[in-house]
Design a protein around this nucleic acid. Structure first.
Lengths: 236, 236
DNA sequence: ATGTGATTTGTACTATCGTACAAAAGATCA
DNA sequence: TGATCTTTTGTACGATAGTACAAATCACAT
């Protein structure tokens, strides 16, 4: 219903570039990068294989563009929610708000893309599992800042827990988050149909509740495990 | 396949069949199924591509054999540890013992294969992410019984928590477990070198501690999906 | 030593991969 | 309308995929 002054700016046809991106996102997220061919993507998008080359040059370029499309909005959303969470006074409530600020944007759309949040997060999970190089580079330089910000925020809410423990637990959080998006059917199956693993709202509430409790667990005093010393070397 | 009384049945050379299995396991676990070619595997094993066909017929057959090799021992080990855990009197201690019985065999070898436990579990994580069909079938018919047994055992230790919540939380546990094996370097990076993500002992202790706390979290009463109510000041 | 069955090798076949590129089609504006 | 730019199509090429199969090799009982 948007009026069109001149019908020049957008193709009247359903934008093929977008269709290819959406199809690739879906296929990569469910089957992995190498299992999906450029021809598969083109067919799913109702396009010609050559069209993919025209718009994105290479298959890697297509993946890169998917990341570019989502990373900005999602991290922006996370920053906003994190800033709001940091202003919560009560420490217990703040911890939950921080965790929620991390989890919610991963499940819901970070931009105008319909339901793109969960799909993109699932894509990230799969690329991570496959050790995809293109993804690894983008992740390290795009998400590590965000991760540190969240770890710091959580640490502020739990000053008595060593940072190392916070890192481990936030790592577990991301793993649980990823896995919830990768195989939601497993939840439905193991609960004998009593839970719907693909229901984002349930997943978020369950994940937040469980994770807050995990963060609040007592610290692991490393004293006992005398085995190997905790790596004194420099960074890396 | 017919066994002979004489000592001729096994190859005297460093068993090439084993070498191929080990190489495939490693490559699949780190790069995914489709990213690895039969030629890659053969080269890593110091074998000829045709040798893979001879021993395993197809690439899927090779993956199938990897699963067959590990599933039995790992589930046996888990059953033993679970049975022992169930005999722990104290409910709190029993919960931890049950979680440990689930986690430990995934990190350590379930058979005589050196360090094969973690590698195989990582393989499972990657196949799960890729939605591999061969793996999905085996998993559903091999691990679901074990998963139900663990869920029941945990539920026994936490009778006041709805089974649905237990299922979600055990799902998160598996996701965290998988992710710890998939990208251990992320832990090292985010902790700025203070933690070693690839140290199995640390991973186990951290995971057990965090997971026990997550299971002990209060139940999510699904009664009213009320507004996002950040627990105003109910208890404090 | 020699025969025999179990393995390993080398090679070849077909299918499909990612990508390139010229031609066709469509859109925009003088 | 025709000129020009953007997008789509169709096709082709070289590389590599999984797999098959005959020949060569090996280990060992005789």
């Amino acid at each position: 219903m948007v009026r069109k002054p001149t019908s020049k700016e957008t193709a009247r046809k359903p934008n093929m570039r977008e269709a290819i991106l959406a199809a690739a996102e879906e296929l990569f997220a469910t089957n992995g990068f190498n299992a999906v061919s450029v021809r598969d993507i083109a067919q799913a998008a109702g396009a010609n294989p050559g069209s993919v080359t025209y718009h994105f040059k290479t298959k890697d370029g297509l993946l890169l563009e998917i990341y570019r499309r989502h990373c900005g909005p999602m991290n922006l959303r996370r920053s906003e929610l994190l800033a709001a969470a940091r202003r919560v006074r009560d420490l217990q409530d703040r911890l939950e708000a921080v965790v929620r600020a991390y989890v919610v944007p991963a499940f819901t759309s970070g931009s105008d893309l319909a339901g793109g949040g969960a799909r993109f997060t699932r894509l990230r999970a799969v690329m991570s599992a496959e050790g995809n190089e293109v993804a690894r580079k983008i992740i390290a330089q795009t998400f590590d800042d965000t991760s540190h910000a969240f770890i710091d925020a959580i640490h502020d809410s739990l000053p008595h827990i060593p940072r190392t423990d916070i890192v481990w637990r936030s790592h577990f959080l991301l793993g649980a988050l990823y896995y919830s998006l990768v195989t939601p059917d497993r939840v439905s199956r193991l609960s004998r149909g009593e839970a719907d693993g693909s229901d984002a709202a349930s997943a978020i509430e369950q994940l937040v509740q469980a994770t807050v409790a995990a963060f609040q667990a007592p610290a692991l005093d490393q004293a006992a495990p005398v085995r190997r010393r905790p790596v004194v070397s420099s960074k890396t």
